[in-house]
Amino acid sequence: MVSCLRRWLWLLLLLAPLAQAAEKTPSPAAVRIGLTPVFLDDQAAFVSAWRIYLEARLHRPVTFVQRGSYRETVDMLREGKLDFAWVCGYPYVRNRDVFRLLAVPLYKGEPLYQSYIIVPAGDKQTRSISDLRGKVFAFSDPDSNSGHLYPEYLLAKRDETAAGFFSKTFYTWSHRKVVEAVASGLAQGGAVDGYVWDTLVFSHPELTNKTRVIAESPQFGHPPFVASRSVSPQLFDDMQKALVNMVHDPEGSPMLAILNLDGFVYGDPHLFDGIAEMFQFIEARRNAASQRH
């Protein structure tokens, strides 16, 4: 067990300078794409294959950049350190002024997805988020729509805040780990990306079997690919085509199958209006609360 941890630490030590090097001295022409855990980004082999696929379509080197939180990726995109990023709809609507919508994944034929509220499978009583009062609740990322904003909104509508309603909340920084936290019993409830949970049902049923979905949100715009303002129109178009054409590509469609997606579409910014409304609702309540004080 020590060796396991030690190996893990060594790996981190070894990878850290590599990651830094990649960040500091990218090839001038390299396309830098930020990835976040809006999909199952812990599949290194798949990510590598996808990179090669995109390099062939863009005729340029591609670098995928993975970070521990949405915020870091979003900040890097804002600062122009990334060209594109696959982020959640929530950071997109908050940065609509600086990000351009590139493509939206098609899930079950629609560019939409849901947030699931899950509890441990052993918990047979809980029927809605209201039953989770005083429990430990796991969020995925503070900047996640499905993993944070939606449950916050649910509570706000009940005139509650997460801090007051739950005895304890924590972030796992990934949807998959929310499922793990709930499955292990560490948290008695969690909010998770419905697309990720559905995908895990196929790839890791032993994990999802230990959890039970008690509530599904309305449909929101699926976490989109967005582009930095600084990206050239040429690259923007190339990248957009590369993603949208994946479904027609004999090499691309198996990758979509792995992603459990039906393809990418150009997407309409209004897809994310629902997220923006929830955000504004919570903001308004916060402002009202701070004014009351």
Binding site: M1, C4, L5, F170
Partner: peptide
């Protein structure tokens, strides 16, 4: 940092038989 999840991973990982 009150990072429950990381603390959980730290105690869980090495002792997971």
């Amino acid at each position: 940092h009150d990072d429950v999840w990381r603390a959980f991973e730290v105690v869980n990982l090495p002792f997971r038989s």
